[in-house]
């Protein structure tokens, strides 16, 4: 008789904790597909760019300022090591982000007539996040480079005032 009485106070709170945890998991399970619908993840965006082909790190150099004051115009340079000949050149460069409302930033098509696989542009960043540049080479391989950026003033989702 004393044992169940001794167990009950211990069992009570632990059941409560379980219920709370289960509820929490339930909310997470429901929230995750909604978020996935709202925006494809970085990995999904890259997979749709590569057609599911594996991406190796290297050969690409993504240059972004590590700290930006204004997320509305962030200078980005992507350079890929490539001889840019008819036989071996960069055919596409994709630029992706982790936390903007949309994962894609821009896709560039290049060829042997560019002479050098290097592009620069200016982009918007909604918050501090990781940027990823993926290059498709003419031999069908994919290479990537990532960079972290800290943004103090966000872009994209601000209201007009």
């Amino acid at each position: 008789m004393t044992e169940p009485i001794a167990l009950e106070p211990a069992g009570g709170p632990s059941l409560g904790r379980r219920a709370v945890l289960a509820g929490g998991v339930g909310i997470l399970v429901m929230a995750l597909p909604l978020r996935a619908l709202a925006r494809p993840s970085l990995e999904q965006a890259v997979a749709s760019f590569t057609g599911g082909a594996p991406v190796s790190a290297g050969r690409v150099r993504l240059t972004v300022p590590p700290l930006v004051e204004n997320g509305n115009a962030v200078g980005v340079t992507v350079e890929v090591e490539s001889p840019m000949t008819d036989a071996a050149h960069v055919s596409r460069i994709g630029l992706f982000n982790e936390k903007n409302p949309q994962a894609d930033v821009a896709i560039f098509r290049l060829g042997p007539r560019n002479g050098r696989a290097r592009i620069s542009t200016r982009i918007r960043l909604a918050t501090s996040q990781t940027l990823l540049a993926v290059a498709e080479l003419s031999d069908g391989t994919y290479w990537s480079s990532e960079a972290n950026v800290i943004v103090t003033l966000a872009a994209c989702i601000e209201d007009l005032s």
Binding site: N72, A73, V74, N97, N100, P101, Q102, D104, V105, A106, I107, F108, R109, L110, G111, N114, I119, T121, R122, I123, R124, L125, A155, C156
Partner: peptide, 10 residues
Amino acid sequence: FSAEFFPAVS
């Protein structure tokens, strides 16, 4: 040369 832009371009 060509490029495809998304809303994240400034």
